[in-house]
Design a protein around this nucleic acid. Structure first.
Lengths: 201, 201
DNA sequence: TCGTAAAGTGGAAGTTACTATCAAAAGATA
DNA sequence: TATCTTTTGATAGTAACTTCCACTTTACGA
């Protein structure tokens, strides 16, 4: 009961995926409609037609319904798939464009709502930043391997830190101005270009 | 009932300051002794001999007992006090050295415990990062004024983002290795030196 | 196809962080 | 001393999680 890629797709897995998606969809919908804090887990569970216990089996916390990002693994895969001769910054920018360019209209709108929620609700914002530092570690290791350098190299760590810092800064700037997902990609990309040019002040 | 600086120092204020310090001290002590999650607000309140209601009047959340940083305003003041001809990066490094060099032994030990807690407890970590992005904004504005540039300048924003990113990266690297507060200052400083040198990869 | 193991679900009961309210106590002021 | 303001503690609540157990549904070998 597996695909050619080896992923199991039995009835169980499909049902699980559907339940998970239903919970997340209803959660986002309710959050947008009546606010994050004002929406209880019980309401979400009721809307998704599962019990509260089941809710917590799918999402460890209420926050995770917003933070769970389907696009993230796609981006990572895309980054790693870039040809070896491309520098790490260029590879990142290419991956960004590829993933961002393939967003359907509905997907883009949903993602925008998600980003707004994260930006506006302090608890979500801080959790996002935690994810970012986790990604910093993974990014650092990936780049280390890519350019054949020790992952603990101080130069490298400073550089990856700068990359992430630049991205976050651009990200928040766009969200402050209420920009779209497309604006987000554009601003992040040009900020990375500045970094590539040696951060001329 | 005020000093020559105009700060009120009545019995009330002094008692408040003492209560605040007592709560934070007992909180940190208990967290270190028996773990953050295992310590309840009731226990902290009991140890500090106040009611739980009073606890929440002094610290909006349990997290804040750890996150409240007495050194932060000192650092900001120190940064702003640097002579105008010093570049922003050099000013930052100077402020870092000044504040870090004046730490007493007890203060240093307490700070180390605080940093370890923040690093090890996910909720605290993510809250810290939120603080960092708030500081990013303030830092950006301060630098903008310092060098006479618009605070929304994309170049500037990318640059300040990079600075903060480099600092955070160094910070986490040291904490991962269980370093002291002195190691922390040293690593952050040399990471900033790398940034100053154009982040040679 | 049937029986059994495994996985998923719901319900109930408990813990704890946090909020709101209000009356009593303590400090400031005249 | 008398009064006015600030601070405190007690009480009662809400909601996010956790734990545990009995029940149903799905998977799979015989």
């Amino acid at each position: 009961m597996t695909t050619s890629q080896g992923e199991p797709v039995g009835l169980r897995e499909r049902k699980k995926a559907r339940t998970r998606a239903a919970i997340q969809d209803h959660a986002l919908r309710l959050f947008v409609a009546q606010g994050y804090a004002a929406t209880t887990v019980e309401q979400i569970a009721a809307a998704a037609e599962v019990s509260p216990s089941t809710f917590f089996r799918y999402f460890p916390t209420k926050e995770d319904t917003v933070l769970y990002d389907q696009l993230d693994p796609v981006f990572v895969e895309c980054f790693l798939a870039q040809p070896a001769e491309v520098g790490p910054l260029a590879a990142m920018r290419a991956a960004l464009r590829e993933v961002g360019g393939n967003l359907g209209n509905e997907e883009s709108e949903r993602e925008r709502a998600r980003q707004r929620l994260i930006f506006e609700v302090p608890e979500l914002r801080s959790r996002l930043l935690e994810q970012v530092t986790d990604n910093l570690k993974m990014f650092n290791d990936a780049v280390a391997e890519r350019i054949g350098r020790d992952s603990r190299d101080a130069n490298l760590r400073a550089w990856t830190g700068a990359v992430i810092g630049v991205v976050v800064s651009a990200y928040f700037t766009v969200l402050e101005d209420g920009g779209s997902v497309e604006d987000l990609l554009e601003q992040v990309d040009s900020a990375l270009a500045l970094l590539d040019a040696g951060l001329p002040l």
